[in-house]
């Protein structure tokens, strides 16, 4: 066989902007550029940063003790004090400072949203990857379990579980995680089902690489964008669920401050003290909206093909 002299390879057309572009530095640069073009996303990121700061620095920022009933926090007739003066956002029916409670409430909401979602994400990813990669009996059993849990309306299920186990921050976190992992597991499973048919996975397997290494080194990295997106959106809905639970009275127990529970406190007085509704409600909607906007932006940035989910 006479080998012709090897000329330099002609540059073939490269794929434009690879959606699976791997470099972290590239990704960050892309994220920065896209943020500058997307005003709502930029605002949402700023809001989230401020929110985290507020939660972290609550003890420094809060003008009063969030749990203490102040004598001057109630009017002569025992009604809450209006905003202004010593209590910038007024007081609640127990004479506690609303602003301080809001700041500490941010801690509660963020902690519960992030911890519950972190747990759900870990379980969901492990279970989803296992089910999708191995298929067969494991997949069937896992799919039926997620079917069962997803059959319960989320809020009602949470309420029932907590009214049985007793309200506490820990239980709220566990119950939300118990339900949310199923949603992520199902999405991840679907993605793994198609990933494991990709040729590079087959190639790695025929090389003699073990299953665990394939899952960790070749499957998982491809799931990272979706995990980031769904975890972000998941924090938004977890915070909503937590506030609903607290509103119903099975969430964060009093006297600890939580936005949902503050709204519940305020509803009996809204005729005379509407600020009790406004302040925590605005905090809640802004926080959830910021997480949702950030999640949508991340979806566009990282994984434009990701499907909608409820």
């Amino acid at each position: 066989m006479t080998a012709p002299p090897e000329p330099l390879e002609p540059p073939e057309s490269r794929r434009p902007a690879d959606p699976e572009a791997p470099s972290v530095r590239d990704g960050l640069r892309r994220a920065g550029r896209s943020l500058l073009r997307d005003l709502p996303a930029l605002i949402s990121i700023i809001v989230l940063v401020l929110l985290v700061l507020a939660a972290l620095l609550a003890p420094l920022l809060a003008p009063h003790d969030p749990l203490r009933t102040y004598a001057e926090g109630l009017t002569d007739r025992g009604a809450p004090v209006s905003p202004g003066g010593d209590f910038p956002l007024g007081t609640d029916p127990n004479g506690r400072d609303v602003l301080s409670r809001l700041l500490y409430g941010a801690r509660v909401s963020l902690t519960i949203g992030i911890v519950a979602n972190g747990l759900a994400t870990i379980v969901g990813v492990v279970v989803g990857v296992t089910a999708g990669y191995f298929g067969g009996l494991a997949d069937t059993v896992i799919s039926r379990i997620t079917d069962v849990i997803m059959s319960f309306p989320i809020l009602l299920f949470c309420v029932a579980l907590i009214s049985v186990t007793g309200p506490s921050q820990r239980n709220v976190v566990l119950v939300i995680a118990l339900i949310y992992w199923t949603y992520l597991a199902r999405i991840i499973r679907g993605m793994v089902l198609s990933l494991r048919e990709r040729e590079f996975v087959t190639a790695t397997r025929t090389l003699g690489v073990g299953n665990v290494r394939i899952m960790v080194r070749h499957i998982l990295p491809h799931l990272v964008p979706a995990i980031i997106v769904y975890a972000t959106l998941g924090v938004a809905s977890s915070i909503l669920i937590e506030s609903s639970l607290s509103f119903i009275g099975v969430g964060v127990p009093v006297p600890e401050a939580s936005w949902g529970q503050m709204i519940d406190d305020g509803r009996k007085y809204y005729e005379v003290a509407p600020w009790l509704l406004f302040a925590p409600g605005v905090c809640l909607i802004v926080t959830v909206l910021a997480f949702n906007l950030a999640g949508d932006w991340l979806r566009d940035l990282l994984d434009p093909t990701a499907p909608e989910r409820r």
Binding site: A236, S243, F247, R267, L277, I285, N292
Partner: peptide, 11 residues
């Protein structure tokens, strides 16, 4: 999607 229904209801 981000608005808590109980809050919207009260408003």
């Amino acid at each position: 999607l981000s608005a808590p229904p109980f809050w919207i209801g009260l408003l």
